[in-house]
Structure formats: structure tokens, C-alpha cells
Design a protein around this nucleic acid. Structure first.
Lengths: 289, 289
DNA sequence: GGTCCAGCATCAGTACAGCTTACGCTCAAC
DNA sequence: GTTGAGCGTAAGCTGTACTGATGCTGGACC
């Protein structure tokens, strides 16, 4: 019988590309991962990995097995979720990931609501960059996470993950009435590789110009402070612009940011996930949107 | 992570009812099964078994988990089958179960065809009573089996097993032109509990009478010999009546017996199963039906 | 060309999981 | 009361799966 623990390693390898990365994700040594994958190959009777120099790639048979591993692992998780549902009310630790804005604006109210509704639940919140959420969920480091997507920058579609929309908020432009006016202004964006960065660039491109980026700052409070200091214009979501510093004018744009809850697909039926998402929703109703 | 080996034991328990029976089916000691199930319960966090005196029954949570176990195990088997398909042509041992009539009439030609088409395959045939086929397939003692069903006696519907129809043959009545004429005759049936027995009883009931059973014999050659000796009438399928003894007349009835190939559901894609079923079909074309 | 480093494999050693064996308990049948 | 079937627990052994150390390969950089 194929061992799902080994299948999990294979799936991670398909995702991460190197044995070392898999080892780090599951907190094993690379040696252990290498041995387990070799054993899996032996059991499978087919080469699953191709060793070329100091790198490994999956063979077609390996990719095929990854597909099956996917469904097996999902189904196992579904079984766990069903058991947890039977076990009674949600209880035990739930690891929650949240991007910084949400951690600040939404989490306190959500945690209070969660403590009220499910006192047995022990939520553990980690701030996490949305770009890392997918990997952390898959690796089992997180159980549920808040992520967001912008117009022009959809959330990563991962077959192993499911999402549930929570709310949408409009985007604001600082200093100017619309994007066209800001065509020649200096811009303040997030750091390259972040969603905020991509969002700003793409929105400007859609408006017909390439933004001249002067500052690269991730924290929206800092962004607004820079804007107040006349350092440039920026796009900020409603939640980050509830109390703009004096001297900063905000114009609502026909752009939005959507916040979603993400979790492993098979885990959706888990009562802890349901309770957490419900608490998010309750907290949202208290949000000044 | 839930261990599929333990899930398998739970599934077997749901089917067989006692730990001792599970142990026998998987060739463990009852102690090992007990320990494994206890461990599974501990991991699940919910009571799965209810111990009442010297017997165990599944709790609702246990039954729920069995459902999931079913799909997990099926999916694992599907993965194995996919690997076997990649591995190239069918090879290795295939355990084939067949009821006595089929073993005699069909198997020689089917094995010859299989040896021609897939020389790497090592079929191992066991005669087996159709009533035991389901359990043997589930326990992994057989990979594919020939079973049959009669009008009025459909094949057992097991969610873990899939079937594929192979051929149908008419039933014959010995001595008389139709069932109504045989209303008051003594009858020769299979032994109680067999499909043949049930088939005869139900067919007579459908014709409006209760057969008077005199002899209980499973082997159709013996049945025909009894009929030739004037000991009564009987229903026999075409395959068993190819060379009736002198003095036995046969009348075709509007009843049929269907022969099917059965295998574990997840195993259907396995090339060895496909090759075996194909060989059965080829052998059937040589059958004087 | 030599050096360094990243990445994987192999080997030896160890810890733990899972099996068997042996034994005790409970309950039903006789 | 005795017997036997059925399950659980304790003790012991084996094999699996991990870590840590070592060696090999190939690319980058000087």
C-alpha cells in the first residue's frame, strides 16, 4: 500500500522543486526526504524522479502520481475534518495567518468573537506575507489564512486550496481625483514582488501609463505619511485609509480589493475553519466600511 | 495524519463484525488488530468502537469514518493501478477467482489467451463459491473474480466492488416444457444458501408454486445425472448443459444467468484487470453459446 | 584551472512504531 | 461450575524511519 506520508513529500517536491526545500517545509533533514522518496520510487516500481546533476525533476510518472497523491491527501483531510466535526464543538489550536492590515483592523474583533462563540478554540495568529500563504497552508503550518486580491491581480489559483470571499473594499488615490491626473507624479508602491506593487503598476498600465516609482514601502500608514509629506501619490485600500493624516486627500476609484479566507481544500468541513470564518464575518460587520 | 492501514482494519471490522474475523482476514493476531484500532481511536479523538461484553460494535462516528476510509482506500488503489499502468505491460501475479462452472468451461481458454496476450502476467486461479467472492476481493485475497447473477437473484451490491458484465446464457428446464408442467414434480436444487438454490425457489415462486425439493446438489453434471435417473426436474444454465446425458430433454426458459467480472472499485484501471477481462471476453467468443 | 558552495546520495546509528506471544478478564452456552 | 469465544494489556522483538556525518557532482566566481 502506498504511504500517504511519502506521497505528501512527493507532492511538496512537485511544488517546491528541490529536496532541500521539501525538507525545510516539513522540518526533516534532506537526507530523510531523499530516503523516503527513494523508498516511494522502489514501491512504485517506476522512476518518479530524474536526477540530473545536482537537481531533481519529476518524471511523467511522478507527475501522474502527484495528481493521485493530491486527491488521497485531500480525502484524508476530509476524514479528519469529519472526525473533528463529530468530536463536538470546535476545539484545540487553529493556526491563523493574516496579512498586516487585516491583523490590525480585523483580527482583534474576530478573536474576541471567536473566544465568545467557541471558548474551546485556541486561535494562534501569525502575520504572514500573502505571497507565502499558499506554501504555509499546504505545508500545514497554517490552517486558515486571510488573503486578498486586487483587480488586475487575482489570488493565486492553487488546486489544493479553497477560498471563501469575505468582503470587498474600494481603493483610494491620494492627492489626485483620478489616475489620469497622477500620470506624471512620483509614485509610492509596495516592494517589488508584493501584491501592492503589482496592483499599482497594473492599475496605472490599465490607465495608459507607466508609473514613475520613487518610494517602495509596504506599510500603508507609512505610505500615507509619505503622501502627506508630498513625496508622491499612492493607491491605498479603504481599511488602510480610515484615518488619513492631515493634508492627505483621498479619491475613491472604481477599483476594489477583495479579502478572502483560504484553507486547504479537504479542510473546509472542519468546524474550526467554519467558526473562524464566521468570526471573520461577524468582525467585518463592525468594520467601518 | 490518519493511517490508511488502520483505516483498512476499521473498514474490515465494519464488514466482518469481530476483531478476530478481521485479524484472520489480514493474517494478523487479534491482539494486533485491537491495538491498531485503539490507536486509531486515540488519534481520532472520538470513540469509534463500543465494547459491550465480549463484542464490539461501531459507533456512529466509527461508521462515518468507515465511509471516508472507503474512499481513501479506493483512491490509494487507483493510484497503484495508475502506476501499474505506467510500469508498462501487465505483469506479475493476478489472483483470479472463479465459480466451478466457469473454471471448467471458460478458464482454460481464457488462461491460454492471457498467456498469449500478456506473457508477463502470472494468473493464479482459485475455485471459489460466489458467496465468498465479495469478502475475498475486499480482503485482497483475489484481484478479479467471475461471479454470476440470475433473474430474481441479483449480484450482491457492494460499494467497494465494481462489476463488468461478460455474457448471458439462457436457463433450461429438464424433463418438462415449462415451469407450470413441473409444478408437482420433485425438484433438484443447489444446497441452501447458494445462488442456484435461491434461483430455483424464486423462479418457481414467480411461476406461482412452491417447489417440492427432493435433492440438494451443487454440481450441475450430477444434477443432470439425477435428472436422467428420473429423480426430478431442475433448472440448469446453458454452459452446464452442453452435453446432457441420454434421456434428459431440455427446454429453454425465458430466464437467464449473467456472468460478470468483479474487482475492487479502485482497481478497475489496473492493466492486469483489463487484460484478464479482455481474455475472458475472447474466451467467451469460443464458447458454444 | 582551482576553489567554493549548493544539492543530493549513502552509510551508520538510534528511537519508535507495530507486531507476536503470553496472560487475564468477561460473558454466554451447556 | 466449567468451557470456550472474544477482547484487552504487558513484555519483548523486529523493522522502519529518522538524524548526523561523509562523499560526490556540477555550476559560479575569481
Amino acid at each position: 500500500m502506498l504511504d500517504p506520508r511519502k506521497l505528501r513529500l512527493l507532492r511538496e517536491l512537485a511544488r517546491r522543486g528541490t529536496i532541500a526545500a521539501v525538507a525545510e517545509a516539513v522540518t526533516f533533514t534532506p537526507s530523510a526526504v531523499s530516503q523516503q522518496l527513494s523508498a516511494l520510487e522502489r514501491e512504485a516500481g517506476v522512476p518518479l524522479l530524474e536526477r540530473t546533476g545536482r537537481t531533481v525533476t519529476l518524471t511523467p510518472a511522478g507527475r501522474l502520481l502527484v495528481e493521485h497523491a493530491q486527491t488521497v491527501l485531500e480525502e484524508l483531510e476530509r476524514a479528519s475534518a469529519a472526525l473533528a466535526a463529530v468530536r463536538g464543538g470546535p476545539s484545540g489550536p487553529v493556526r491563523v495567518g493574516a496579512f498586516p492590515t487585516a491583523a490590525r483592523a480585523l483580527m482583534p474583533a474576530a478573536l474576541a468573537e471567536l473566544a465568545r462563540a467557541c471558548p474551546e478554540l485556541e486561535p494562534m495568529v501569525s502575520e504572514i506575507d500573502p505571497a507565502d500563504v499558499s506554501g504555509a497552508l499546504r505545508a500545514g503550518e497554517l490552517d486558515v489564512a486571510l488573503v486578498h486580491e486586487y483587480d488586475f491581480v487575482p489570488a493565486e489559483a492553487d488546486p489544493a486550496l479553497a477560498t471563501e470571499p469575505l468582503f470587498a473594499e474600494p481603493m483610494y488615490l491620494t492627492g489626485r481625483a483620478d489616475l489620469a491626473e497622477a500620470r506624471d507624479d512620483p509614485w509610492i508602491t509596495g516592494k517589488p514582488g508584493t501584491l501592492c506593487h503589482a496592483m499599482t503598476i497594473r492599475a496605472c498600465q490599465a490607465a495608459g501609463f507607466e508609473p514613475r516609482v520613487r518610494h517602495q514601502v509596504d506599510d500603508f500608514d507609512t505610505v500615507l505619511a509619505f503622501a502627506a509629506a508630498g513625496q508622491g501619490v499612492a493607491l491605498v485600500p479603504r481599511l488602510a485609509a480610515l484615518a488619513p493624516p492631515p493634508g492627505v486627500t483621498l479619491s475613491e476609484l472604481p477599483l476594489s480589493r477583495r479579502t478572502l479566507a483560504a484553507f486547504r481544500r479537504g479542510y473546509g468541513g472542519h468546524p474550526a475553519i467554519g467558526a473562524a470564518v464566521a468570526a471573520f464575518r461577524t468582525a467585518i460587520t463592525h468594520l467601518p466600511l
